[in-house]
Amino acid sequence: MTLIENLFENLRLELRRGCLTLAVLAQLKQEHYGYTLRKALAAQGMEIEESTLYPLLRRLESQGLLTSEWREEEKRNKRFYRLSIEGEQIFARLLEEWNQINTAINNLL
């Protein structure tokens, strides 16, 4: 990988990091377990690696933005996540911020 490509990759990852959190919070207005969440995000064009998504869910839960519960589905125990009340409030504010940034960038371009 050349220096420029490396720089681009770092900046791309930095840009995506915040967006992924927003996408996950948006998708978890409905309950999902890890794998179906990943599929749902991919179906909307937001591909995300397993090794990024599953730890992210844990982190958001430890921050109080998600709630989770273990439940059996299709003869297998799965951990289902959804937005908590605090998560809904934070998501609304983040969305507002996102829209402002989006508008500003569109104006700049």
């Binding site: 377990y33 890890g34 794998y35 179906t36 397993e50 599953y54 297998r76 125990n77 799965k78 951990r79």
Partner: peptide, 16 residues
């Protein structure tokens, strides 16, 4: 806890 969750996710993915 983490391994149980990871297993459930990866097994579901494998089945698919």
């Amino acid at each position: 806890d983490i391994i149980a969750e990871l297993r459930a996710n990866l097994e579901a993915q494998l089945e698919d």
